[in-house]
Design a protein around this nucleic acid. Structure first.
Lengths: 135, 135
DNA sequence: CTGTATCCCGTACGATACTG
DNA sequence: CAGTATCGTACGGGATACAG
């Protein structure tokens, strides 16, 4: 029960520190969480974790993403140094995206979260059912 | 480099499985990520990780959250079984919120993510600077 | 003290059309 | 193939006022 305290303390500290920066910039921790929370970033990272892929290859594997969001999300990931972009000057141009070292390092902690999610789903579902029943 | 592959595979599998459920319900993994991504859930979890707290106590410690979002976020966390709500029938009513076992178990994997974020911030910031400079 | 109800706005995202 | 540009919308979330 006390295991998380240090982590929690540091987290809150970081968060508040950023709040005092006022509009200058946002909290670095929130920054990361926002990416994780947005609709496509992590899905793309996971798809790229398997192997480097080309633009349309990703598009085919993730059919329900719009071209706009695929481009935009890849740009954001690239900007943050999680993904690198390689243009091949072939006849029809082709562009390959791959995880950087930083991007690959994200997979580990993110994996723990997925593991937690998968393990906890039954309990969450049950909690919801119980909660909704009463309400 | 290959460490994340299994995790990634399972993740993508889960994700797609939910996509096929069509509008019935959303992906369980996405479900969790959405909570982590939303503006206040994880901050509140971290604040409650230190100790159980009352409504206004939380409100005071997180001054920039609106009453609406504090209430709403706490309800969501309660619904998912991450937080429990205890009403004390005192003269001015008081309500205490505390993490459930499930809620506490989230702190561990989430902590890894925070750790990663903190460790990676310099690299991300540099990547951004580099990216923006070129553009 | 612990909420609920209402209004309002920014933006994340999708759909569609066009380009080198 | 790999994008960019434009438009429209749904919704997260803030501000404010009210209530038990």
């Amino acid at each position: 029960m006390q295991q998380g305290s240090d982590i929690a303390g540091e987290f809150v500290e970081r968060w508040n520190a950023a709040a005092e920066v006022e509009q200058t910039g946002t909290c670095p921790v929130r920054d990361v969480l926002d990416k994780i929370g947005d609709k496509w970033s992590m899905l793309i990272v996971m798809y790229l974790a398997a192997a480097p892929k080309r633009f349309n290859q990703l598009h085919r594997e993730i059919p329900d993403i719009s071209q706009k969001m695929l481009t935009q999300t890849l740009r954001d990931l690239q900007r943050d140094g999680l993904v690198s972009r390689h243009v091949f000057d072939t006849k029809p141009p082709s562009v390959e995206y791959r995880l950087t070292g930083l991007g690959q390092s994200l997979i580990v902690p993110f994996g723990y979260l997925i593991e937690w999610a998968n393990k906890s789903i039954p309990e969450i579902v049950e909690a919801r059912a119980c909660f909704d029943e009463i309400a």
